[in-house]
Amino acid sequence: MPTAKPSLEAPDRPDLPDVLPYRINGHHVVVAEPVLLGAGGRPTAQAIQFLRECQSHALTVTWSLRRADAAGHIPPAPDFAFAPLHHLPPPSGPAAPDDWRRAHSYGQLYYRQGPGFVQIKDCRKPDAAVRLTVDHPDLLAAFHTCLDPTTLDDLSHTEREAVSVLAAEELVLVTRGWAVSLPPRIRHWTVPDTGI
């Protein structure tokens, strides 16, 4: 009976969005350029998607924050707050908010997928930690649609209302006409898994 030959290929790499230049070595991702975050719009939504997917795969990420473009043409969005992002890997460097590094821990916000629902655990505010089950079809569809950055103009009236409800709970970030879901899908659990 023939025996299977061991694979000489490297293990599969996680499927990360192709929106930022990065290098990956094992479980460590290094983003090559400072990330424009806080100006809002598409670049911010895509950066959040990238960091969320790194968190989802339990990857260590080294990245630095850029709050506006080099010429200052993209000012910070007036309504942008970093606090809802503290569950994501914090930036390094002088532009990094100190409170992000202090507040961050793995598993603060995540979702688990069920048949016809998602269950979300949100511990970003320790004194107001919640578990939510999103099973309403419109809310569930909006949550899944916004896993990829989406313009509000591309959503139906019902979908925009659903995004508004999710944004009020800080489960979707809406900035300058773009929406992106914030919770990562946890694929790697701490030991013991009750830790998150």
Results as ranks from 00 to 15, higher is better:
residue 170 E to K: 14
residue 149 P to W: 14
residue 105 S to C: 09
residue 192 P to V: 07
residue 45 A to F: 13
residue 135 D to P: 01
residue 30 V to Y: 05
residue 152 L to C: 11
residue 30 V to A: 04
residue 142 A to M: 06
residue 136 H to G: 03
residue 84 P to Q: 07
residue 178 W to T: 06
residue 97 P to Y: 02
residue 17 P to V: 04
residue 178 W to V: 07
residue 46 Q to L: 11
residue 166 L to N: 03
residue 122 D to R: 01
residue 101 R to C: 08
residue 78 P to T: 05
residue 15 D to H: 04
residue 77 A to H: 15
residue 8 L to R: 15
residue 187 R to P: 08
residue 126 P to I: 08
residue 131 R to V: 13
residue 193 D to V: 03
residue 17 P to F: 04
residue 47 A to N: 13
residue 36 L to P: 01
residue 81 A to W: 07
residue 121 K to W: 02
residue 10 A to Q: 10
residue 108 Q to K: 08
residue 58 A to Q: 12
residue 156 S to E: 12
residue 150 T to G: 09
residue 93 G to P: 00
residue 114 G to M: 09
residue 161 E to P: 00
residue 59 L to D: 14
residue 10 A to L: 12
residue 66 R to P: 01
residue 8 L to Q: 09
residue 170 E to Q: 15
residue 119 Q to Y: 00
residue 169 E to N: 05
residue 132 L to P: 06
residue 143 F to T: 03
residue 92 S to M: 02
residue 5 K to N: 10
residue 194 T to M: 06
residue 55 Q to Y: 02
residue 164 S to G: 04
residue 34 P to V: 06
residue 195 G to F: 09
residue 14 P to Y: 06
residue 173 L to N: 09
residue 3 T to P: 13
residue 187 R to G: 08
residue 191 V to T: 03
residue 148 D to N: 12
residue 64 S to Y: 14
residue 24 I to F: 06
residue 6 P to Q: 08
residue 161 E to N: 03
residue 181 S to N: 05
residue 116 G to D: 07
residue 53 E to I: 00
residue 78 P to C: 03
residue 97 P to I: 01
residue 182 L to F: 11
residue 155 L to Q: 10
residue 72 G to W: 14
residue 16 L to G: 03
residue 70 A to F: 13
residue 19 V to D: 10
residue 20 L to Q: 04
residue 20 L to K: 02
residue 25 N to S: 13
residue 102 R to P: 05
residue 91 P to I: 01
residue 67 R to L: 14
residue 121 K to P: 00
residue 144 H to T: 05
residue 83 A to W: 10
residue 145 T to H: 10
residue 48 I to E: 15
residue 89 P to N: 02
residue 130 V to K: 15
residue 127 D to V: 12
residue 5 K to C: 10
residue 185 R to F: 10
residue 174 V to T: 15
residue 130 V to N: 15
residue 98 D to T: 02
residue 20 L to V: 01
residue 126 P to L: 13
residue 72 G to V: 11
residue 164 S to T: 05
residue 120 I to K: 00
residue 47 A to T: 14
residue 168 A to S: 15
residue 33 E to W: 04
residue 192 P to M: 07
residue 76 P to W: 11
residue 136 H to V: 05
residue 190 T to F: 04
residue 51 L to D: 03
residue 91 P to K: 01
residue 7 S to F: 12
residue 133 T to R: 13
residue 21 P to N: 08
residue 97 P to N: 01
residue 79 D to I: 01
residue 158 T to E: 14
residue 179 A to V: 04
residue 170 E to T: 08
residue 21 P to V: 08
residue 85 L to Q: 07
residue 50 F to W: 13
residue 44 T to E: 15
residue 125 K to M: 07
residue 74 I to T: 12
residue 60 T to V: 14
residue 80 F to T: 03
residue 41 G to D: 15
